[in-house]
C-alpha cells in the first residue's frame, strides 16, 4: 500500500462533496419558471423543507461556509495539498489525454471487442497520478469554483441594501455566470461519481478516498507513469515509509 491522499485532502474532498451537492440541489431549487432546469416539483420539494426564505438563507450560509473553509485550506495546506494538486491536474498530455478519454468511454460503453471492430485500439495510454478524466473534471471544478465564488459573493454580499451594492446589470450577469458554472458541474459531477464509485475496477481508488492508501498493484495498473516516478525515487520498495509521509 502507498499513500495517495493526505488526511486533510480526504476531509476536504468529502466536505466539498457535501457542499457541492447541497449547493447544486438548493441552487436549482431557487430557480423558477423557464429557468428551472429540473421541474416545478423540485422547487416545491426544497421550499417545502426549508421555506421560501429559508432556502435562500441556507444556500447562502452553506456557500459562505464552503468559501471560508476552502480559504483556510488553501492558506494552511498550500504546500502539502493545494500546490501539488494544481501541479498534477495541469500536467496535460494533449493527444494521450484525449485518447484516454475516448478509449475509456468506448471501453465502458461498447466494450473492448466492439471498440476493436471500430478500428480503435482499446488499450489505454499510460496515466500519471491523475488520469485524463480526473484532470479534466478537476480543472473544470477549479475554474467553476472560482466563477461560483466570485459571482456568489457579489450576489450574496454586494446586492440589496448594502452600501457597496453593485449595479443591476452586474448582478444579472453574475446570475448567468453563476448558473453556467453550476450547470457545467451538474453535468460533470455525475460522470465523476460514476467513474470513481461505480465503474468496474475503481474500488481501490474509492477506498483510498477514505483511508488515503492505495494498493501498489492498483497504481502499477492504473497509474503507470506515477508508478514509474515512485520507482525512480525508490518509494514502492519501501511502502512503510510512505505511510508516514502524508502528501505523497
Amino acid at each position: 500500500m502507498i499513500r495517495r491522499h493526505t488526511q486533510s485532502a480526504i476531509f476536504m474532498h468529502w466536505f466539498n462533496a457535501f457542499c457541492w451537492i447541497f449547493l447544486l440541489f438548493s441552487g436549482f431549487a431557487l430557480l423558477s419558471g423557464d429557468m428551472q432546469p429540473i421541474d416545478q416539483w423540485w422547487q416545491d420539494l426544497w421550499q417545502g423543507i426549508f421555506g421560501q426564505r429559508g432556502l435562500l438563507v441556507a444556500h447562502l450560509a452553506v456557500g459562505t461556509i464552503w468559501c471560508l473553509v476552502y480559504a483556510l485550506y488553501i492558506v494552511f495546506c498550500a504546500r502539502s495539498d493545494v500546490l501539488p494538486f494544481l501541479r498534477e491536474i495541469t500536467r496535460f498530455q494533449g493527444k494521450s489525454d484525449l485518447a484516454w478519454c475516448v478509449r475509456k468511454g468506448l471501453w465502458l460503453v461498447l466494450g473492448p471487442r466492439r471498440t476493436r471492430r471500430l478500428g480503435i485500439n482499446p488499450v489505454l495510454p499510460p496515466q500519471g497520478f491523475y488520469n485524463a478524466g480526473q484532470k479534466m473534471v478537476a480543472v473544470m471544478a477549479v475554474l467553476s469554483s472560482l466563477g461560483l465564488v466570485a459571482t456568489g459573493i457579489l450576489m450574496g454580499y454586494f446586492s440589496g441594501d448594502a452600501a457597496w451594492a453593485v449595479s443591476q446589470t452586474v448582478l444579472q450577469w453574475c446570475l448567468v455566470l453563476h448558473f453556467a458554472c453550476a450547470a457545467l458541474m451538474a453535468i460533470l459531477l455525475p460522470i465523476h461519481i460514476y467513474m470513481a464509485a461505480l465503474a468496474p475496477g475503481e474500488g481501490p481508488a474509492l477506498r483510498s478516498m477514505l483511508t488515503g492508501m492505495v494498493p501498489l498493484e492498483h497504481v502499477r495498473e492504473h497509474n503507470p507513469l506515477w508508478y514509474a516516478e515512485l520507482k525512480a525515487s525508490g518509494r514502492p520498495e519501501s511502502p512503510v515509509r510512505d505511510v508516514s509521509q502524508p502528501g505523497q
Binding site: 423557464d34 429557468m35 432546469p37 429540473i38 444579472q172 448567468v176 448558473f179 453556467a180 450547470a183 453535468i187
Partner: peptide, 18 residues
Amino acid sequence: SRPVEAMRPMAKAVTWIG
C-alpha cells in the same frame, strides 16, 4: 434583460444534456 434571458436556453440545455 439579455443576461437573464440567456438563462432560459441554458436551463433547457442543462435539462437535456444532464
